[in-house]
């Protein structure tokens, strides 16, 4: 698809900003998202389905979110599409996580 991911040659993206002594991960949730994606058995999805799920993100969201946020989006969408869980189950997990966070605060 002629999506926002197909960036080669686009103007207006700004300067490249390398980070000195960059860590492998910038937050613990990045570690978890990376590991979740890599741990899911290869029979559930293939790499092209993974890439295309990210390509289907809305363009504005794609550009305004980080790399591992793309992966998080991909996991949520792809696992529902692959029938691994229902959207309602994910929403329930969001509520539970929020309650647990409030409870421990």
């Amino acid at each position: 698809m002629n999506g926002i991911h197909d960036l080669g040659g686009m103007h207006g993206m700004g300067p490249v900003n390398p980070e000195t002594d960059e860590p492998v991960f910038h937050a613990d949730w990045e570690r978890r998202v990376f590991a979740l994606m890599m741990a899911i058995p290869g029979s559930v999805y293939n790499i092209d389905e993974f890439r295309h799920t990210i390509e289907r993100m809305e363009a504005a969201e794609y550009l305004s979110t980080s790399y591992y946020e793309h992966w998080l989006h991909c996991l949520e969408v792809l696992m529902i599409e692959k029938g691994q869980f229902e959207r309602a189950e994910l929403e329930a997990a969001w509520s539970n996580a929020a309650s647990a966070a409030n409870g421990s605060a």
Partner: peptide
């Protein structure tokens, strides 16, 4: 639809708990 939590760490925690519960990881 319920919107996902604005706190990304919370959203990841929720996903992880669901994938663990489903036996995927």
């Amino acid at each position: 639809h319920t919107e996902p939590p604005s706190d990304t760490a919370l959203r990841v925690k929720a996903l992880e708990s669901l994938l663990l519960e489903k036996g995927l990881v």
